[in-house]
Design a protein around this nucleic acid. Sequence first.
DNA 1: AAATAGTGCAACTCTGTAGTTGCACTATTC
DNA 2: GAATAGTGCAACTACAGAGTTGCACTATTT
Lengths: 104, 104
Amino acid sequence: MTTALVPVFAALGDETRWSILAALGESEASASALAGRLPVTRQAIAKHLAVLQEVGLVESVRVGRELRYRVLGAQLSDTARRLDQIGAEWDRRLAAIKTIAESL
Amino acid sequence: MTTALVPVFAALGDETRWSILAALGESEASASALAGRLPVTRQAIAKHLAVLQEVGLVESVRVGRELRYRVLGAQLSDTARRLDQIGAEWDRRLAAIKTIAESL
DNA sequence: AAATAGTGCAACTCTGTAGTTGCACTATTC
DNA sequence: GAATAGTGCAACTACAGAGTTGCACTATTT
């Protein structure tokens, strides 16, 4: 299953979500724990985590009575790979057109 | 000048803008030309192009009386590289924590 | 058993923005 | 010089989503 690309970027296009990802990049944490460090409510964070989980950037594990979230760097790297391929393809094609144009 | 990352993702988090980028990935085009191929008005496309240009994904060149837009694959590849580094850093750090935890 | 920490869900506000219509302006092209 | 193709700008609508408050529920701890 290859995750659709656009929703991933939409998820990454929000500063608050990057704050959450950055925090999770240092250590796993629950929504409540994150709410202690960030200037938003726990409910807002829960919504962001749902978005991030939907696009596979985050996964959750039950630990006692808390839901602990973990960031998935591999998904980010996979997205990066696909992005790089698209950019390279554009430049390749446009360079080819330019070459043809100049040969006229 | 390293472009801020989040605005780039916000720009990439829209399907219509991807349609525009895909079209420009095949050949340069003006806002009016793009409006002929896509199911949105020329004005809407102009706004999207402004957003894309703001984050450096697109540049424009005057050709006669038209403003022709060109996609910049290099900016996409650069973004991809930075994204990959971030993902790798997360996984590296969390793996280190896991190792420490298991050694207890 | 009681207190509590963590979560889930719903309703609401508010801002941002995607998209539209309409008109004015300008440089072409004939 | 007149018609026209391309763009620029402004006002407006409509919807998505970021954030809030409030309450209910549940599984822990003590």
